[in-house]
Nucleic acid binder design. Structure first.
Lengths: 153, 153
DNA sequence: ATAACTGCAAACGTTTTGCCAGCAT
DNA sequence: ATGCTGGCAAAACGTTTGCAGTTAT
């Protein structure tokens, strides 16, 4: 799955994106992308850094930040502000809903539809042109509830 | 309206909260609370600081941060992470939906119901105990659309 | 040769913290 | 006297940026 996505990415880079701004897929950038697709969690920049470092020990945190920015503005990953002090990144670029544990900071995807909001309605009422949305539930995860619950999705 | 809320606050402080942790309502804290209730926007800590400073010129930014923290953990205001680099604060403590302009950073309330999510369902599916949620739409505000639209709520 | 890229370190903006003094109880 | 509080300044934290050298085209 990961491999497929990366191949698609490279195809895209070889096609549209590359022709626009000469975006290259360096081994650092690829490793960062792989890491996020692999993890399937919602890592912070530093978490990505720690993982990528195991493969590329000389990579710098600045490079990670730079590439996270590039990858997310290219639409290959998503930058999600989930409420904590750090930005988080998500390999899943489709609209979905998150839930964050207020105690341990863990973040999961929520198996539910994005808000039922008719975007047209919102545009009419607010005057805004809607681009997207970010819905985060806050709660206490099964583990933090006292080892009593079962694991979330 | 503001006065009423503040009076309620003081009554609360004189009752429940005070008896628990000796929380006092200093003039700085009151000014900060007033400011947020007055503004009816979603100010950053620094915006609160700039406004409060006009009444209490010697107040320090540290004090503002300390009190924003105290007020929000007392439930008198709300700390809302709206996606930008700064935390924002909201005098309205009821669940509602925000929209943020991706260009100018302006934040408005959205005249719609919070997500239609059955919280019970979410709890069952995810295993989390739900405490709250935060929904933020991203868009372009009427002003940034090129002075063509009308003002939002 | 050119332009994108990396590593490093310094800088930046936001938020937190330590310290001492002030004030309410 | 105790302890919550404020002002000030330093520190911490996440993130961005400038620069010099490297790599790919």
């Amino acid at each position: 799955m990961k491999a497929i996505l990366v191949m698609i990415t490279i195809m895209i880079l070889g096609g549209n994106l590359l022709s626009k701004n000469q975006l290259r897929m360096s081994k650092q950038r690829l490793a960062i992308l792989n890491t996020i697709l692999d993890l399937r969690s919602h890592p912070t920049a530093d978490e990505v850094y720690q993982v990528v470092r195991q493969k590329l020990p000389r990579i710098s945190l600045g490079t990670v930040y730079r590439n996270l920015e590039i990858l997310s503005s290219s639409g290959m990953i998503r930058k999600v502000p989930l409420g904590g002090p750090q930005m988080r990144f998500d390999g899943c670029t489709e609209d979905h809903v998150h839930i964050r544990c207020i105690q341990c900071g863990r973040v999961d995807d929520l198996p539910m539809d994005p808000p039922n909001t008719r975007e047209g309605d919102i545009q009419k009422k607010s005057g805004y042109r809607i681009i997207g949305h970010c819905t985060v539930f806050i709660g206490i995860c099964p583990v933090c509830q006292g080892e009593g619950g079962d694991e979330a999705a």
